[in-house]
Structures are given as C-alpha cells and as structure tokens.
Design a protein around this nucleic acid. Structure first.
Lengths: 102, 102
DNA sequence: TTAATATATGAAAACGTGTTCATGTATTGA
DNA sequence: TCAATACATGAACACGTTTTCATATATTAA
C-alpha cells in the first residue's frame, strides 16, 4: 500500500484534528448519533464558542457532518471509517500493554 | 463504551503524535517491519536529527518500539492496534466520499 | 586507544494552534 | 417587526510544537 505525499498529509491532518482532547471528546460524543452543538458544549464542559470553532475544523475535514433541524444544528460522524478508527484506538488504550516493551 | 477523562487525553495524545506528516511517514515506513534510523531519514527525506527527535516521541508513547542490533537501531510498530488504526485511516482516504456531504 | 559509523539530545529559532471575548447570522414564535 | 434562542465567526492572546544546529553517546573495527 503505497501512499502519495498528498495522501499522507491528508491522513496526518485528520489525525492531528483528532489529537486535541476537546475535539476528541466532541468527536466521541458524536459517534453514536447526531448531537446538537449546545449539548456538545454541556457534555464536554467547553464554551459554545470553542465547540463551534472545533466543529468547523471537524466539518471541513469531513470527520463530522452537520444537519440543521430548526434552530439547532446536529453533528454526527461522517462515516464508518471514523467510527472504526476511534474504536480501534479505544481498544488500544483499553488493552494491557504487549510483551517486550521497555 | 464510556471513557475516563484520562483515557480520552491518552488517546488524543496518540492521535496528535500521528498527526504530523513527518512522524506519520516514519510510522508508516515502520508498519511492515523494523527499519533503521538512517533508512527512515533517507526514506522520509528528513534529517537524521529530526527523525531521532520524532522517534523519541513515538517511542515514549509506545507507538513504536526500538531494538538495537549492533550500531543500528531498528524501529517497528508497537502492536497490531497501531497497524489497524493507520490501515483504517488509509482506507478512509482511499475510499470515494460518501453520500450527502457538502 | 583511535577512528569511523550510527544514533541521541539540548537549546534556540521559527512557526502554528487552542482558547477567549465580542459580535454577527439564522431560525422560531409572538 | 421584535425578542429570544442557537450557532458561527473574526481578532488577538497565550502557549506549544517542529525544526535546525551543534554536540554528545554508543558500537564496532583496526
């Protein structure tokens, strides 16, 4: 599986966006279904403004997608790859360390 | 699957480390087996010093593990979760975009 | 021990990112 | 239209990170 330089940079960009605790919390809350911005702010403990800023980045990278219903805007994971990647990482952290580490 | 705050921060840290193009290139080259530092520098086009700095971070986070053989030090992915996460992400980028995006 | 090769590390420069605050836009209901 | 709710955005501050350069450590061979 050979990647172009652009593809590598694209993947790095997605990982980078997942690499901030506030953004990752937002993302995890969105994994199981659409969540409104206000609810994300409350769940994460971050300000509404900060959540919106992060949501814009996650949306631009196609990690989340937005859908307006009336006054509220609901965000959800863009696709199953995102869910799988985060799920794998959760497994990685949950699992006891493997043999031979330092 | 509920995560503690510490676990969320730990996962974010791993994603963050994968989120730099130079580091991600290093990581991808290490996915299929141990690679020496000098070879990583040549493959990525980064300086030996920069590669070493990045390797230290990847090692500290248990994303890569090091093994010395004579003068050379070989780095490889620490476990299968790492391989799986990167593999999923490669699929994500390779796949055509899903329906309904903007 | 000395030289050569391979890797690691400390400090500083250059650059980028997360967060807050104030304000703007969109939607609904009266 | 006016007020209220929900979300988005621009600017600026504060902070952290990537990278380079010089130098140090480890291993092997002579």
């Amino acid at each position: 599986m050979a990647l172009t330089d652009d593809q590598t940079v694209e993947i790095a960009e997605i990982f980078r966006l997942m690499g901030d605790p506030t953004r990752l919390k937002i993302l995890i809350y969105c994994l199981d279904g659409p969540v409104a911005v206000g609810d994300l702010a409350q769940a994460t403990g971050a300000s509404q403004s900060l959540v919106s800023h992060h949501l814009r980045l996650l949306r631009a990278a196609r990690i989340l997608r937005a859908e307006r219903r009336g006054k509220k805007v609901y965000y959800a994971a863009a696709d199953d790859h995102i869910r799988t990647v985060v799920g794998d990482m959760i497994d990685h952290v949950a699992e006891p360390a493997e043999d031979g580490e330092d």
